[in-house]
């Protein structure tokens, strides 16, 4: 009985709490109480919709990963802007990226990261969740793009999720 009253997903609860504080423009007595109630209630109400809860192995690495992605978004935007304005034609390519991640949430995060960063959009995941189809805007060397994604994004995600 009491086992059902806790926080089934601490990470989701933390996110909900922080989002509520942001919506209220900073901390105040009322927003902390309401945020705590929401952070407890929403995961409770939706617990049956989550098939399995993701195992955060090294959750403290997540902020570092987010910072790296934010920085890459800035770099990506500048390089795409330069490509848009330059007269030369881009060389688009479809790339099949072999996934080593297994958890659906980790794959979603990798796919979202790929979509937000330099010249790549993730287009599809194969049915067995082994291959990620990527569209690259300007691919000179497809193998190099795969290597970059592998070392820069997939390795850190692999450490965070297991």
């Amino acid at each position: 009985m009491f086992a059902r009253l806790g926080f089934p997903q601490p990470f989701l609860s933390l996110c909900l709490f922080l989002v509520w504080q942001l919506l209220n423009d900073g901390f105040s007595g009322g927003s902390v109480v309401m945020g705590a109630i929401l952070a407890w209630m929403l995961p409770q109400l939706t617990r049956n919709f989550w098939p399995e809860r993701p195992a955060l192995l090294k959750g403290w690495l997540l902020p570092l990963y987010v910072l790296r992605v934010l920085w890459d978004i800035v770099v990506a935007s500048i390089s795409v802007a330069r490509l848009v304005l330059s007269p030369r034609k881009p060389r688009p390519a479809f790339i099949s990226y072999p996934l080593t991640l297994e958890h659906p949430l980790a794959i979603t995060m990798l796919a979202s990261t790929i979509s937000l960063t330099p010249g790549t959009v993730s287009a599809d995941v194969s049915d067995d969740q082994r291959i990620l189809l990527i569209h690259a805007l300007d691919a000179e060397d497809e193998q190099a793009i795969i290597e970059t994604i592998r070392s820069r994004y997939e390795k850190p995600l692999q450490e965070i999720f297991l």
Binding site: I73, V74, I78, V80, A81, V84, L85, P90, P92, V121
Partner: peptide
Amino acid sequence: GAIGLARLPDFFARLHAPTKATTL
């Protein structure tokens, strides 16, 4: 981002402009 939407050669390439330039 808007220029990219008009200039890039095909649908898949045009996808890149709104997801990045506009985000920044």
